[in-house]
Structure formats: C-alpha cells, structure tokens
C-alpha cells in the first residue's frame, strides 16, 4: 500500500494538438490517493483531450504522465510496454464513459459484463464470479434479478451504473470519468451522483472527473481545474474556485449557472 503522502498521478507539461487545432496546452497537476479532481470547461475547452491523454488513450505531443504503480515507483505511462499498460488499464485503472454503451459489451449479460475483468485476470470459478457480479449489482442498486439480462434492456441510468460496477469490480485505485451524468434525467443523475460519492468515499478512490456541470463538480471533487481554450486558467479547492473565482472565464462560468 503506497504512502498517502506520495502522489498517485503526476502530470507535467501535457500538450496535444490536432493539426492546427489546439487540444490542450501545458497542463500539469498531481493527484493523491483518495482525492477527486474535477475538470470543468465548456465544449472545446480541451478537458476531454486532457482526460484521454492522462488515461493512456491518446498519446500527447508533449509532456509526461507518471503513475505510481503498486510497486511504489512513479512510472511514465507512455514509456511502459504495451502489456504493462493494458494490464494497468484492466486492473488499477477504470474509465467511465459518458455514453455507457462505449463502456459496456452490449451483447453479453449484465453479469458477464461485471465478471469480465475478473475473468481477464484469471478468475476461473463460475460460482464465485457470479457471486461477485451479484454483489456489485446490488452495490450499484441494480435489481440482482437482472443479472442475466442484456444491457440493451436497461435504462440509461441503469446502464451507467452497470458501467461503474464493471469498472470497479477489480478494485482500481484511479478512476477516470468523462461526463458521467451527461444525458441522464435529473432524478437519475442525483441517484448516480449519490452512488459515486458513496463509492469514492468508501473505496478511497482517486478520480479525475471531467464535467461541464458545476454542481457535479462541487458535489464530487475536492479540487477543481477550470479549462478554457486548451489551457488551465484556474485551479484550487473546489468551493474556493466556485465561490471566489478569480479568472474572468471562471467568473463567467459561475455566474452563468441558473439557480432553480
């Protein structure tokens, strides 16, 4: 178990361009175990590019992303061998997609979706795998009677919760989330956020959450990074950034939110 005073993820000088288009520029931050960092910004801010670069889905043009593996050493994720990186993505890391269909196998049952990562790391006892899947379905408040149903028969909110269960079953230490509540009804969002808040706290997960919704950021993240046109314009304690915004763009963002 790594020392909680040592950062889990260290990002330095990260930049990515799409030809003449800027994705993100010179982004740097550190993430400690158990900490949630929110990345907010509007479309085109570069937040999704940033998320993909730090989760090994998109190779950056510049900069370094280092992750502290279970061995305790800080390793450059783009210098790792592909098997090592893929293993990391299957065990230590989790990625929750905005559209649950991107993060699920739609043609296999809910139970198989949750059990897959276990089978991928060598689980070979059907009863145990099914038991673990059952546990996780109840944790994410999905009726366990639906363990053999296909995800296509689930509502959007249920699919999203299934995606979360599928990701967390191997006990990852770091979760990346891309607009996890995007496209869901408000009441469904509330339930999902409550679940996520609970799991993050209970499991001591570190997370990077990309969202355009300031309320989601305030609820889930300890620290906040505000992105605009590919750059981080402000970062700090979440409530401080939202209650005492300094940068003109942050002030605009905060004042634009409608209060019901």
């Amino acid at each position: 178990m790594s020392d909680n005073h040592e950062p889990l993820l260290v990002v330095d000088g990260l930049s990515k361009r799409y030809g003449a288009q800027l994705g993100c520029r010179n982004v740097g931050f550190s993430l400690w175990p158990g900490e949630v960092v929110g990345v907010v910004g509007e479309s085109g801010s570069g937040k999704t590019t940033l998320l993909n670069c730090i989760s090994a889905r998109l190779t950056p043009d510049d900069g370094v992303v280092r992750y502290r593996t279970r061995l305790g050493t800080l390793s450059d994720i783009y210098q790792m061998s592909e098997p090592e990186r893929r293993m990391l993505m299957r065990t230590d890391w989790a990625f929750v997609h905005q559209n649950p269909r991107d993060g699920l196998r739609m043609k296999v049952s809910a139970g198989a979706n949750v059990g897959e990562r276990l089978m991928a790391v060598g689980a070979r006892h059907y009863g145990n795998i099914r038991g673990a899947a059952d546990d996780w379905l109840s944790k994410v408040e999905i009726d366990t009677g639906r363990i053999d149903d296909l995800p296509a028969t689930f509502s959007g909110g249920m699919q999203q919760r299934l995606q979360i269960a599928r990701n967390l079953v191997t006990g990852p230490r770091l979760v990346f989330m891309d607009e996890p509540t995007g496209g869901l009804d408000v009441s469904v969002q509330a339930r999902l956020l409550d679940l996520m808040r609970g799991l993050v706290g209970e499991l001591g997960l570190a997370a990077v959450i990309v969202t355009h919704d300031l309320a989601v950021a305030r609820l889930l993240s300890h620290r906040l990074m505000v992105m605009w046109r590919g750059e981080v314009v402000e970062q700090g304690l979440t409530d401080q950034v939202l209650d005492d915004p300094q940068h003109p763009y942050t002030q605009l963002l905060v004042s634009s939110v409608l209060q019901p």
Partner: peptide, 30 residues
C-alpha cells in the same frame, strides 16, 4: 466476441483471454 482483427491479434499476443471465458460464462448462465 471481438470483430476487430487488430484487437484479437493483440489479445493473443498479450495472452488476454478473459473474453473467451465470458462466452463460456454466458452459456452457463443461459
């Protein structure tokens, strides 16, 4: 289970066979 040739080649190369057991799991559950 995985229609992409690029993916299946990697899975063989990296010995990532969890998906094969997913198929068997599905059989048993159904």
């Amino acid at each position: 289970l995985e229609p992409r040739e690029t993916e299946t080649r990697k899975m063989h190369a990296l010995e990532e066979y969890g998906l094969m057991h997913v198929k068997l799991y599905e059989d048993i559950s159904q």
